[in-house]
Amino acid sequence: MTMEYGGVWNGCLEMNSRQVIQLEFFLEAGDFSTAGEASSQIKRILQQIGVKAETARRIAIGAYEAEMNVIIHSLGGKMRVAILPDRTDISVEDNGPGIADVKLAMQEGYSTAPDHIRDMGFGAGMGLPNMARCSDEFSITSEVGVGTKIRMVIHHP
């Protein structure tokens, strides 16, 4: 059940008598060629269902930062997106290596990205702070050797 542009369309289910659009994206470590596709696709869907432009943009930027983080820093992972009439819920899970000091990682400008990544214009240490800024609810948990979990909830006004 693959959508035309790469994401997996998990269907639009009735949950608690409410409509939900669920999407799942598999993110491969180091695969820059598809970076941004998931976010653009999410934004397109939000536009089609009529979510306000400014809100759709925050969601897309948050999703993009998450996508990039998994591609740059992790061993791969996936992003699940649930779009409801009143909010978008994004959860990202990767397969490691995990963040030793989450507090430090959340600081603006802090980055562990190697030089070749920085040369590409990424790794400015703004990823996690940006994600938090774009979200109405943000949480991050990480375990070294296991992986990192991020959840972003953005309300549709």
């Binding site: 639009c12 397109r44 089609q48 269902i49 009529g50 979510v51 009439p85």
Partner: peptide, 12 residues
Amino acid sequence: LKLDEDIVTAMK
């Protein structure tokens, strides 16, 4: 690009 004025209808 909007599919419908009502968000739930648009989702359907």
